[in-house]
Write a protein that binds this DNA or RNA. Structure first.
Length: 229
DNA sequence: GCGACAG
DNA sequence: ATCTTGTCGC
């Protein structure tokens, strides 16, 4: 039984309509749910890469066993770019490609780590939340930079965190995944709580800043692009 | 109007 | 995201 979107909608819409869709879909969000780590056996990572003058984007997903982090499945695919990059509307650009690849997965990840934000978003509905709602699967947003909110630099040691606050609310955490590296910004996507999101992210990190599943997906999307398939 | 702004 | 050489640090 593969993952199928339980909710579908058009992605080729006006920016105005896109923002409205986010406001509507936000009602289906289920945050604050502790992740049952004992039942997590598969963790996936997802990312997208582009080719300058090409109309296509290359999405990739890599799945690892948890907590052993052994690779079990990878998938990638190219999709025509159908929406421009607009801060706050990233999902309308990349989600179509990611969903296309995710549904071709033979296995069903228990949680998906996505390159981008979850609720740490202007309307509380970033790409990680969007994909999490459409698929009904726990998701976590792991971004390399801030979209909204403020934070104080966390301690230098791996594992240190500092709240990312937006409109007086803690919408995410600046997490130091390795000693001395720049922090990544973790936020809830869907069907998970912030503490679990931070824990799963940290426990998936090897010797690099980004959690292993996302790194693998990032590399795979780059390989796919290089092959221009 | 000005600056900020995931990938 | 992508375009790019050298360069600082472990």
């Amino acid at each position: 039984m593969k993952m199928k979107p339980r909710i579908t909608h058009r992605f080729k819409v006006t920016p105005k309509a896109a923002a409205k869709l986010q406001e509507e879909l936000k009602c289906r969000l289920e945050t604050g749910r502790p992740l049952e780590f004992d039942e997590v056996g598969l963790v996936a990572g997802a990312d997208v890469s582009y080719l300058r003058g090409d109309e296509r984007m290359f999405a990739a997903v890599s799945v690892f066993t948890y907590p052993d982090m052994e690779p079990v499945e990878s998938r990638w695919g190219s999709t025509p770019v159908g929406f421009p990059y607009i801060p706050g509307l990233l999902a309308f650009r990349e989600a179509p490609a990611l969903l296309s690849v995710l549904r071709r997965l033979a296995c069903e990840p228990d949680v998906i780590l996505i390159d981008g934000h979850g609720v740490a978003h202007p309307r509380g509905f970033g790409i990680a939340s969007h994909i999490g709602v459409l698929l009904g699967v726990p998701t976590v947003g792991v971004a390399k930079s801030v979209l909204v909110g403020e934070y104080v630099m966390p301690a230098r040691r791996a594992g240190s965190r500092a709240p990312l606050v937006y409109n007086g609310e803690t919408v995410g955490l600046a997490v130091r995944t390795r000693d001395g590296v720049k922090p990544v910004f973790v936020s809830v996507g869907n069907l998970i709580d912030l503490e679990s999101a931070a824990r799963i992210t940290l426990s998936c990190c090897g010797r690099y800043r980004q959690p292993e599943p996302i790194r693998a997906a990032h590399r795979l999307s780059n390989v796919a692009r290089a092959g221009r398939a």
